[in-house]
Design a protein around this nucleic acid. Structure first.
Length: 575
DNA sequence: GCCGTTTTCGGCCCGACTGTTTTCAGTCG
């Protein structure tokens, strides 16, 4: 079965892990890790590239020989090197790397000295006190291993961003309130706007680093201090969220904030760029020889490197440095650019007074229109909407519109895309609506060709306007459907349809790479909240963040259009 | 295994922190 980019990247990453554990040439392992990153950051389907015979060694960090191996992985899911590694090392051994404090060297020791092959083996060995007998281990590491392998299953590995944001705000407020602290800032993947995060990174500037770090460890929400030094601490909160704090001298704040915002790949690329122009960048500043030439702000560092300040959302080493050098960075979309929301639930129509508060909230966000679009399923658990209900709703919308000035409700529906690609409502009904949002809600298990054809056929319906949450993923719960997103995007372009970025925190679907695909194909993205009340509109900010991570500019987004400019875009001209 | 505005060979980000050592290797971000 041909593999998706993320799957190929996973295989390359596994090869890197296994090579490191084997203890061969560490730089060879790093080469595979770099290749994994390059493939993961790739927009077009790698399977498509291989099928077209395109040369993968045009990608950064990939030479002809490695390109051939990757092509083999794409076609077969494996390669001779991986097969050899699997013969020589247990399949589950890379799991051990997930235990904090255990890296490739220690995994190698555990396997060669104790024959440990899995997390379960490791847990038992630690229980029996055998781990401390291995060279390089001691009683302390053994205790940590025991704790980690017990807690490993209980602690969620990734957190949805909205669950972490309030914690970030409260902890930065706590730190800011300390008299010794000048600034307390959020860094890491939270700042980069990732949809889910593994931990929370904070940076403070202060002249009294060790006192601040010490006091932070005594915060009432801290359950455990994992490590603590004069300039940094890692703690686990009662909720299980890990928080890393760094305290730096105020003159180093920019360098530290830049460094701890990451991503790691961006940092490495930035350091390579610095080295190429004869400078050295580290977390304390930018240096020419022994002299520090920048570092108090992020801007000072980027400027000294001859680059503009890069938005944190772009810092993923996906071509942003090259774009910056060539002055081709996108002018990213912002919340203020949105003029409407094209996917609102009708619950607001039914509850007394709530449509008024929803419209008022929308107006205060600068929006001029909302589209009501409930889920219509042939037989479903969701509030079912049929022809009569839709007609009643249309009357209600007309009545409300008549009472509004400078604001408009649009009539829409979220219609189920059936297994064969037909829509679950008749055309004569769809024809009366301002927009038709098609959604996959069942049969997630279809093969990639089937699922892709299903979406393409749905878009062939001349009333189809927007494809809702294109992959159907639920972050941390359900992976997206197996679709050829590039083919879907191309078909959307050919049919004059648009793609939705559903901004609900558990969806954020399209994802960032999907947004880039849409942009590259010239397909517009509708950033929508799927809100059923005024509070739900705040999800739009998360959608904007995701769109920015996908390099989208205002013109790439459907609902940055005024109502006048939007109307013709909702009418299909290509069938 | 990749890469080249000193290099086609000899580098490959680098500093903080920890634990196990007895002066430093491993891990992490």
């Amino acid at each position: 079965m041909p593999a998706r980019n993320a799957e190929v990247a996973t295989v390359l990453g596994e090869i890197a892990d296994l090579l490191e554990i084997e203890g061969d040439n560490l730089y060879r392992a790093r080469a595979y890790r770099n290749a994994a990153h390059a493939v993961a950051a790739l927009r077009p389907s790698i399977y498509g590239l291989v099928a077209e015979g395109a040369s993968l060694h045009d990608l950064p960090d990939i030479d002809p020989e490695l390109a051939m191996r990757i092509a083999e992985i794409v076609r077969t899911g494996s390669c001779p090197l991986l097969d050899r590694l699997h013969r020589e090392l247990p399949e589950a051994i890379t799991e051990l790397l997930k235990v904090p404090g255990i890296g490739p060297k220690r995994v190698h020791q555990l396997y060669s000295k104790l024959g440990i092959r899995s997390l379960q083996d490791l847990h038992h060995a630690a229980q029996q006190g055998r781990v401390r007998s291995v060279p390089g281990f001691g009683a302390l590491i053994e205790r940590r291993v025991l704790e980690a392998t017990s807690a490993h299953r209980a602690r969620p590995r990734r957190w949805l961003r909205p669950h972490v944001l309030p914690v970030a705000e409260s902890l930065t407020a706590y730190l800011s309130a300390m008299p010794e602290v000048e600034h307390a800032l959020v860094a890491g993947s939270v700042r980069r706007g990732r949809d889910s995060v593994g931990d929370l990174d904070l940076v403070v500037s202060t002249f009294a680093a060790s006192e601040v770090v010490e006091r932070f460890g005594h915060h009432e929400d801290v359950q455990e201090v994992l490590s603590s030094g004069p300039a940094r601490a890692s703690v686990v909160l009662n909720t299980g969220l890990q928080v890393d704090l760094r305290a730096v001298d105020p003159s180093q704040l920019g360098a530290a904030w830049l460094y701890f915002t990451g991503s790691k790949a961006h940092n490495l690329a930035l350091r390579r760029h610095a080295a190429a122009v004869g400078l050295k960048l580290d977390e304390r500043g930018l240096h020419r020889g022994r002299r520090r030439i920048a570092g108090d702000t992020e801007l000072s560092i980027y400027e000294a490197l001859g680059l503009p300040l890069l938005a944190p959302e772009l810092r993923e080493d996906r071509g942003e440095l090259e774009a910056a050098r060539l002055n081709r960075l996108p002018l990213l979309v912002e919340s203020e650019h949105l003029r409407g929301d094209l996917h609102i639930r009708s619950a607001a129509l039914r509850a007394p007074g709530s449509i008024a508060s929803l419209i008022s909230a929308a107006r205060s966000l600068g929006l001029d229109y909302l589209a009501i679009a409930d889920a219509a399923t042939p037989e479903g658990e969701l509030p079912r909407i049929d022809a009569d209900a839709l007609a009643r709703q249309a009357d209600e919308v007309d009545r409300i519109n008549a009472s509004l000035q400078g604001f408009r409700l649009l009539k829409g529906v979220e219609v189920e895309i059936l297994e064969d690609g037909r829509l679950a409502l008749p055309d004569r009904l769809l024809a009366r609506l301002d927009l038709v949002i098609g959604a996959v809600r069942t049969h997630f298990e279809l093969s990639r060709p089937q699922q892709t054809d299903r979406l393409r056929r749905a878009m062939d319906n001349r009333h189809f306007t927007v494809l809702a949450h294109p992959t159907g993923r639920l972050i941390g719960e359900r992976p997206g459907c197996d679709i050829d997103l590039q083919a879907v995007v191309r078909h959307a372009k050919a049919r004059g349809c648009h793609l939705e970025l559903d901004a609900q925190p558990s969806r954020l679907d399209l994802d960032d790479l999907g947004c880039q695909l849409a942009h590259d194909a010239g397909v517009l993205v509708s950033i929508s909240s799927a809100a059923s009340d005024a509070a739900g509109l705040r999800h739009l900010d998360a959608g904007i963040l995701q769109a920015r991570r996908g390099w989208l500019e205002p013109d790439d987004v459907l609902n940055t259009r005024s109502l006048e400019a939007l109307t013709p875009l909702l009418r299909r001209t290509m069938v």
